[in-house]
Amino acid sequence: MQWTKKDMELYLGSKEYFDTAIIPIIPFQLSQEANIGKSTSKREVLSVFVTEIERELSGRLLLIPNYYYLEFGDKDEEAKRLNNWTEEISKQPFKHVFILTFDAGWKRHEKDLDANLLWLPGFQTDQLNSTEILQMIRGQVADVVELIRSYW
């Protein structure tokens, strides 16, 4: 389910069937101009990704609204805030909380995070609508879905 009125009404009526939440985390930073192309492109791919993952598992998984952070900011601070989010979500209760990112920088902070970090090597593309790219994303989505299911 997504963070929309319609979906959340369904969720509230069937809370006992939901035990998994996923937080997409997205970096941005205007001051590093050389990086903006890469960063925005990855963000677009990530949004297709989470939409597809949510679609496959929408009856058990809640898609949390995006979390944004400064790409070259202090990751320790961000980890603390993310843990606040995780704590709040876990109380509902959600047994499994995942953080989805394309940012390899998080790998080094994985141990500081209370949620499960799902790091995927993102990629850049100008052809987000081409069949090949979508085919490829679908292949990866199937893998991520498998991974999430392995926690159930």
Binding site: L10, S14, Y17, L57, G59, R60
Partner: peptide, 8 residues
């Protein structure tokens, strides 16, 4: 789309 809560 599963008629329960909508998974694929």
């Amino acid at each position: 789309i599963c008629t329960h809560l909508g998974c694929v």
